[in-house]
């Protein structure tokens, strides 16, 4: 089946099987920042933005998002760089496997919630697991990123 996706502001056409998942389509086409993890929507590392909202690309059929907008970390490079500075400063990353998905989720949260409380930030990020950091550094980094108006 032919599917058109607006990926990172560029229209792309793909030929996919009906049962192919978005994470596989993206990875097959070199969007390798989209990770494969649990493959059951539980870990969050496959998160991409679909029409601006974080979704688990491991569980969305590519045919179901025909003519929709998909954003991977490459599509928000400037914001990702900024966020990564804050992460670095707080010692909030280690292996980096979950970072693209986390950055996309934080970016979506920033657009969706106005002045989120610490509790709201935690709630929003519940589905993004990180096995290295223990989350405290991440929370601090995200807070300072949200307050950074530069």
């Amino acid at each position: 089946m032919k599917v058109n996706l607006l990926i990172n502001n560029e229209w792309r056409a793909f030929h996919v099987e009906a049962g192919e998942y978005l994470a596989d389509t993206l990875r097959r086409n070199d969007f390798l920042s989209v990770r494969r993890g649990c493959d059951t929507t539980s870990c969050g590392v496959c998160t991409v933005l679909l029409d601006g909202k974080p979704v688990p690309s491991c569980s969305i059929l590519t045919v179901a998002v025909d003519n929709h907008e998909v954003t991977t970390i490459e599509g928000i490079q400037k914001e990702a760089d900024k966020l990564s500075d804050h992460f670095g400063r707080e010692g909030a990353d280690q292996c980096g496997f979950c970072n693209p998905a986390l950055a996309l989720t934080v970016y979506a949260m920033k657009k969706e919630l106005k002045n989120p409380s610490d509790q709201e930030i935690r709630e929003y990020l519940v589905g993004n697991l990180c096995r290295c950091t223990g989350y405290i550094g991440q929370e601090k980094a995200i807070r300072s990123y949200l307050e950074d108006l530069s």
Binding site: T41, G44, L50, K53, P54, V55, P56, T105, L125, V126
Partner: peptide, 12 residues
């Protein structure tokens, strides 16, 4: 609804 997994699952 808030108690079901994370935001990304709840978005689908």
């Amino acid at each position: 609804a808030r108690h079901v997994m994370g935001v990304s699952l709840r978005n689908i």
